[in-house]
Design a protein around this nucleic acid. Structure first.
Length: 517
RNA sequence: GGUCCCAUCGUCUAGCCUGGUCUAGGACGGCUCCCUCUCACGGAGCAAACCCGGGUUCAAAUCCCGGUGGGACUACCA
């Protein structure tokens, strides 16, 4: 691989420019993140701009979702106008909003007209029907799929007449028919395109809105964007953008085209093959820091032997030139692992805040005012008790919404299970029942003051030792009796949290279950 | 079809610019073992890759060319 040019320059200004057509997805998050990291690393400015120039595809509420998501993951943008209306609710007082292209239409129109005047662009009156026709013909002949330049060759009189008759028109870029357009991409180095193969791109649509191509070139120049960091899907249209900068007499920014994120089948990451919206992962209880960490490592890796990075740390070591040129298949198993690691680093109160909403939404815990009750039994419980329950499953959680199924047995009157699973290995039911009765007599004598995991363990282990039993003979049936599951935390911890009364109740229930079969 | 981009374990990657230290390192996942009543956590270990063919060179994962494969783009979408 040839040498890469360096990315650093004075006055770094970058932007993330999503279109409000739905939720922010993983790919968009990575683009935003790399822009953000680059800005922070270079002491530059990170701007948010909304590309809402397609009225048809614009989705109600999408803008709010995107802003909310960006704020949730901690990617704060630096500047922008103060906005009126709904968006304000999402943006703290005094903070700037994003720039919004639909509020800048005059700007684009003026610039398009300027290009027409110079001869760098021209009016096109072709109907969509005619356009479809030439496209069909070109497809049939397996030729190039491009506009045929019909309206470029209109005489001034013909053009004037069409304009006066009020015919719908678009403005197209007048691409030179000879020569090459090339540029240096930070990630891909030198790239060049034959001008003859570049289409006369529509710049201004018949509804008066600009296309992406015009709007972003005008905005990037006016906003003094130094580096355009965007997805690789834009690489083929970059020469059109360069041509536009030149037509305006502007210096193009430096480009960096990020590798695509792929589905497991190596196609462009899409919703069809699983959840790709950041929102989907938030709902499942993934942590923002895990998501950011995960997405950052898709195409970039600052060192060979570290996987855990905070935003701050990444901002210190980020290098655009170090971003890979090849696309990445997104491996969500690694996200699970990362998220599990972040979850395990949380303390009890943090975990409580993270997990409680999931216990509530699963209908396990009901909250009224400041009191919590077990939904199934109406029993009142303290936050610290709930916190203990949650903390107990800390090592088993990959994402916070799993807390409900993991801890469900704490929130029922009696867990339901097949009595057969009370038997450890080759134990018979009778042996299991005997073991449970023995545990019950031991625990009945356990003083309330000594009812904690450590002392319960001491009592039971001593008894096991003295009787020359195997630990599993006692602990397995006990654990199943308390949890109703083959896999669960240790019986000592469960018993401690359940309390003496419930513990004994569950043990007796298990015994009766065996005896009644 | 055309244009452009890309190519190291199944996946994410380090190494490539500045060729030898690479019998190719790390991570996820998989498998085995330890810890252990179970699961999980944690620990130890194993399997697993330089797309192919030429060239340059004493020497190529690394440089060059070609092939093959994959992908993106090819809209009055972004």
């Amino acid at each position: 691989m040839p040498k890469k040019q360096t990315a650093s320059l004075t006055a770094v200004r970058v932007r993330f420019a999503p279109s409000p057509t739905g939720f922010l997805h993983i790919g968009g998050l990575r683009t935003a993140l790399y822009n953000y990291l680059f800005a922070k690393k270079e002491g530059g400015t990170f701007i948010l701009r909304i590309d809402d120039t397609d009225q048809a595809r614009s989705v109600e509420g999408a803008l709010e979702h995107i802003l909310k998501t960006l704020q949730w993951v901690g990617l704060e943008w630096d500047e922008g106008p103060q906005l009126e209306g709904v968006k304000d609710k999402l943006i703290e007082k005094g903070k700037s909003g994003p720039y919004i292209q639909s509020q800048r239409l005059d700007l684009y129109r003026t610039h398009a007209l300027q290009l027409v005047e110079q001869g760098s662009a021209y009016y096109c009156f072709c109907t969509s029907k005619r356009l479809e026709g030439i496209r069909a013909e070109q497809t049939a002949q397996k030729g190039l799929l491009m506009y045929d330049g019909f309206c470029k060759n209109l005489t001034p009189d013909e053009r004037k007449e069409k304009l006066h008759s009020g015919a719908h028109f678009v403005i197209r870029l007048n691409v030179p028919s000879e020569g090459k357009t090339s540029f240096n991409d930070i990630i891909r180095n030198h790239v060049d395109f034959e001008n003859a193969l570049i289409d006369d791109q529509v710049l201004l649509k018949s509804d008066g809105f600009p296309t992406y191509h015009l709007a972003h070139v005008v905005d990037d120049h006016l906003m003094r964007i130094s580096h355009v960091i965007r997805g690789e899907e834009w690489l083929p249209s970059t020469p059109k953008h360069i041509l536009l900068y030149r037509a305006f007499g502007w210096t193009p920014p430096i480009f960096a085209h990020l590798p695509l994120l792929l589905n497991p089948n190596r196609s462009k990451l899409s919703k069809r093959q699983g959840d790709v919206a950041v929102e989907d992962y938030r709902k499942k209880g993934y942590l923002p820091e895990a998501l950011v960490n995960f997405v950052a490592l898709l195409g970039w890796n600052p060192s060979a032997d570290q996987e855990i990075y905070t935003l701050e740390h990444m901002a210190k070591v980020f290098r655009l030139e170090a971003v890979n040129a090849s696309p990445s298949v997104v491996n969500f198993e690694k996200l699970d692992w990362l998220n599990g690691r972040y979850l395990r680093e949380k303390n009890s109160s943090e975990l409580f805040e993270i997990c409680l909403p999931f216990l509530a939404s699963a209908g396990l815990i009901a909250k009224r005012e400041h009191t919590y009750t077990i939904a199934a039994t109406g029993e009142r419980v303290t936050p610290s008790w709930i916190s203990k329950v949650i903390t107990l499953e800390k090592e088993r959680m990959k994402h916070a919404d799993e807390i409900a199924s993991l801890t469900e047995f704490f929130f029922v009157d009696t867990p339901q299970y097949d009595s057969m699973i009370l038997c450890w290995k080759k134990m018979t039911s009778e042996e299991a029942a005997r073991a449970l009765m023995y545990v019950a007599t031991l625990l009945e004598q356990q003083p309330d003051a000594s009812w904690n995991a450590l002392l319960i363990e001491e009592t039971l282990k001593r008894a096991i030792d003295e009787n020359g039993m195997k630990t599993g003979e006692i602990l397995w049936p006990l654990r199943v009796a308390l949890s109703g599951r083959e896999a669960s935390p240790s019986p000592f911890d469960i018993a401690a949290i359940l309390g003496k009364e419930k513990t004994l109740k569950r043990i007796r229930y298990a015994v009766s279950k065996i005896q009644s079969q």
